[in-house]
Amino acid sequence: MDSYTEADLHRAVEAAVRAPSLHNSQPWLFRLAGGAIEILADPARRLPAIDRTGWAARLAVGAATYNARLALAASGRPAEVRLHPEPREPGLIARLTPARERPPTYAETELFDAVPRRHSNRQPFWPDPVPTEVRVRLIDAARSESSWLALLVGTVAVAGFSEIAHSADRVLQRDTAYLAEMETWRHAIPDYARAPLAEPQDILPQRFFNERRRAPGHDYEPEPLVGILGVPGDTAADQSNAGQAMQKVLLTATAAGLDTSLISQPIEVPAARDQLRRSLGRPGHPQIVIRFGYGMPSRPTPRREVSEVLTGSGTLVPGIPGT
């Protein structure tokens, strides 16, 4: 097969829009161009106060790219991916061109089946520990996408991260532009998908609270499993690739029966991000924090229709900061 078709495009986009994004902003566009599927950052969905560098948009579009890759592979039409292929069009994040047709692998089918089931769960998780073999699968998922996942082990490590995360959250809560932008996007997170009201004993910061307090005995897990995902570099392409790795980790967790939620405050505040990097003692740059566990059933947040995220092949989309 020399080119993708409109049917391939729709199949890829239906999966891609299920990717996570900061504040459910869904900052992506898709088009068919010269037989390739191209995935772009949507400048109309930017978060200029919160995402000043464009990091969060690139992470989200990278995650959408991974879902599109899975959908194509699951249909027997896998793709070769080039990130940021056109310097003259910085808003173009990924180009997917047809590879040799082949049946999907078991792993691809398993992860693709998890796409509609993956969503953030901001509610408390059960205290049950995540088995060692599942932790190994999560680490391997990140490694297979040229990234690393550092799982925090022990109360001391979690407490240290908690201090960094809460400090970053306090910095953001003093930023009036940040608060105003959060309020603007509050509608994108339905009440059922929000966290319960914060309480002093909470180990990790949350955002987008509902108005309900937790019943007694429904605290967050006392020792959450926290993973920091990072990549060797910190260029625009590195951040887009981190989005692909993040999505593979999230889908691996979903396929294993885990719930997840994302924590980005320590990444959004430069000083906190640097402190987190130094505390890990790893080469490279942290890009997102993931909380893993076993939770009560929850529902995904709404997504834009496929027709809303398609754009013409001749349309140049401007870039986002840092591209």
Results as ranks from 00 to 15, higher is better:
I320T: 09
S75E: 05
D175H: 05
A157M: 00
P232Q: 13
R11P: 11
D191Q: 15
A19G: 02
Q26W: 03
I139C: 08
G319L: 04
V130F: 00
R143W: 09
G322I: 03
R31I: 14
I288N: 11
E163K: 10
R277K: 11
L276N: 07
R214Q: 14
R88Y: 11
R102H: 10
S120I: 01
L149P: 08
P266H: 01
T235K: 02
A7K: 14
H84Y: 04
N121R: 03
Y66F: 04
P20G: 09
E199P: 13
P300C: 13
Q244V: 07
R174Y: 10
Q275M: 13
D274N: 15
E38T: 10
D8V: 09
A236G: 12
E6V: 13
A114D: 03
T311I: 14
S264G: 02
R11L: 15
A168V: 03
Y66C: 00
D234V: 09
F292Q: 09
S3H: 13
L149Y: 04
A142P: 00
A159I: 01
Y4N: 05
P321A: 10
G91L: 04
R170V: 06
A165Q: 00
R212P: 11
E268Y: 03
Q247V: 01
L280D: 07
H285T: 15
A180V: 08
L197V: 15
N67V: 01
Q26T: 07
L310H: 12
G227F: 01
L258H: 03
D128L: 09
T132I: 11
E86I: 08
P43K: 05
S279Y: 12
